[in-house]
Amino acid sequence: MSRRRISLRQELPLLVWLVIVWAALWQDFSPGNLLFGAILAVAVARMFYLPPVDLSGRFNILHAVPFALSFMGKVVAASFQVMYLAAVRGPTVTNAVVAVPLRSHEDLMVTATGHVISLIPGSLVVEVDRSTSTLYLHGLNLSTPEDVEKLRREVRDIEAGLIRIMGTRQELDAIRQEAAA
């Protein structure tokens, strides 16, 4: 095989996820079913070989829980905002395409940030520049430069939150220095 082998430890989150999906679909978490799911997961991961995702090796659950809660809060608030805009403003809504340069150059981090910001109503990723890790977002109801700046700050905050959860050490240090400055 031409690609470099990935260690079992690096593959483990994927395998665990596959076993959980298997057991959830069968609605059966008995040891026998889990074992059979694990065998299938290993077989699938061996046969359908995907490019390895570079995980940073850290995952901070203490930051993940508040992040998930604030994410749900934002989704709820923004869903009602989009509903209001659709009902009241409708055809006269003003939008903007905003460039947001991200700190991280990791593919996983750019993808995660793009996903989170896309899931929050009112913003959607139109284009990604991988070489400079810049996201181009389409934002709903942005009429003034202040609104644009606010969206940009929000995206940078989301990225900072994700780096605190699962960024590399270097990115984490950069965030800490930025916060201290």
Binding site: S79, V82, M83, A86, P91, L124, V126, L140
Partner: peptide, 24 residues
Amino acid sequence: AAAVGLLRFPDLLSRMHAATKPQV
């Protein structure tokens, strides 16, 4: 809200907001 947004928003990109996001 998604249906209303699809009808009321003026262009494809703003319709995408209504069509995909409230469903999360």
